[in-house]
Structure formats: C-alpha cells, structure tokens
Nucleic acid binder design. Structure first.
Length: 257
DNA sequence: ATGGCAATGTTTCATTGA
C-alpha cells in the first residue's frame, strides 16, 4: 500500500499535475495540503473520474487539506480538524483506509521566530501531539502525513549555518516536532538509507531548486506497528520539475499488506 | 534537464508562504 503526502500550493493550479502523478504512481492514499479551495469548489468530480474519492476540509485563499483515496478502497470515520481544539484554519483531516488511520496535517508556517504566528504554531503543535496521542491509543496502525513546517535535523537543511535559528529550524519548533516522535511515531524517511541533501521543499526564488537549496519539512510519521510494515520511503523530486510546479515535492511511503 | 517567486483576492498592489 502506497501512502503519500504533497503540499500542492493551490489544488486549482496543480490539478493537472496531481492527476498526472496519481496516474503514474497509483498510490492508495494521497494527502494534500494548501488546497486553497472552499469545499464547494473542490474538484471531486474530476478526481472521481480519475479513480479517486476525495475527502476535504477547505477554505478560501489559505490552507485546506484533503485525503484522496483510490476507489478500490473505502475511507471511514472522516474527522475534520483537531477535536477539542478551536481553529478557524482548515489544517487537519483524518480517515481510516485499509485498516490504517490516516491523519493529514498542514502545520502552521510560523512566519518568523517570536511572531504571533510563531506562537500559534507552537500551540498548534502541542494540540496536534495531544491528538496524535489519543489517536495512537485507539489506532495502533497510525500514519500522520503532511507538511510539518519543521526540518527536524541539520541534515534536513541545505545550509544549516545560514538557517541557524530561523523559522522552520528553530529549537522550540524542533522540540515541538520531537514531541510527536516521543509518542513513538517514527519518521519513515529515516527508516532507510537516503541520499544526502534530500529535501521536500525549495524556495521559488533565487534558483532554489536548481541549486538544491531546500529543506525537508514534509514527513510521513508512523506508529511502531505500521513502521514495522514500511518497506520504503522517498521524496519524488521529479514532481518539482517542469512548468508550474508546487514548491513542495511529494513524499511517498510503501507499507506491506 | 531543474533556471533567477507564486497564488490569491482586497487586483493593478498587499499579503502570505517557508
């Protein structure tokens, strides 16, 4: 079973790419972030024709998440947002697919260290950790996929000295991310040997992608029983090439049946 | 090939992202 996550930076702009990628990769589950579409405008018909059923939580202009499920599987227990956590921003959706609890997250960016949005990000992380903990208690087979807006370690940053202390790599953010790992969730990418300087996001500016000036901020976290089934995890940097790319590349993990 | 921001709406600039 292939589980994937992709911050598409506007599903409206990226729909042809997403359809092409689904056709090429045929994942069972694709989690999307930054769909930037209110639910009434979500292109579920087009996806259905492509063989996928979508479940989504969107809003105009910003944020928005979706879980896209291949139609030979069923998605149950759809939950939007973090239960008990008030948030006007659409950043979380969960579903159970093929016996695996899927939680799709778009963690706040944080803008700059110390800003109001940074404080919101840290509080959001804490709520997400509580949620992950309660989900783990009822779903041993759990995957949390999405844009975590944190590069966990120096090796996840193209130039750690340049980025030192900046938003996305600051220590409080990394501590918040490690709260998830402390629950037992594992970074599936690091279960395997990986090429050095592998990233999931590159700035549109200053030739970020051609120079590989990137960060690894998109992750697939797995509970221990699911991680034990994981046979691969990689980042598809090909999807960052060509005309009108998202600034993020998809992450795709495979788990055995 | 992978090329010097992109997407959105409040649109002709401001805001946000990371």
């Amino acid at each position: 079973m292939k589980l994937a996550t992709w911050n598409v930076n506007s599903l409206n702009m990226r729909l042809p790419r997403v359809l092409g990628w689904l056709a090429a990769m045929s994942p069972e589950v694709l989690c999307l972030q930054e769909t930037k579409l209110e639910d009434a405008k979500f292109p579920h018909d087009v996806l259905r024709e492509a063989g996928y059923e979508a479940h989504f939580a969107g809003q105009k202009t910003y944020n928005g998440v979706a879980i896209v499920v291949r139609r030979d599987l069923v998605a149950d227990d759809i939950v939007r947002g973090i239960p008990g956590f008030e948030d006007t921003q659409q950043r979380v959706i969960a579903a159970t697919v093929g016996g695996i609890r899927i939680v799709c997250v778009y963690v706040p960016n944080g803008q700059s260290v110390g800003s109001e949005k940074y404080v919101y990000k840290l509080g959001w992380y804490h709520a997400a950790a509580q949620y992950a903990k309660s989900e783990l208690a009822v779903h041993p087979q759990l995957a949390v996929l999405g844009d975590f807006n944190v590069a966990p370690e120096a090796r996840d940053v193209h130039d750690p000295v340049l980025w030192e202390g900046q938003v996305l790599v600051s220590e409080p953010e990394r501590v918040a991310f490690r709260e998830l790992l402390a629950l037992g969730l594992q970074d599936s990418f690091r279960l395997f040997e990986q090429p050095p300087a592998t990233f999931s996001w590159w700035d549109y500016r200053m030739l970020g992608f051609p120079k590989n000036h990137g960060l690894r901020i998109d992750h697939i976290l797995m509970s221990p029983p699911l991680a034990a089934r994981c046979t691969s995890c990689r980042i598809d940097r090909n999807a960052r090439k060509g005309e009108k790319p998202s600034d993020h590349a998809p992450v795709i993990a495979e788990v055995s049946d």
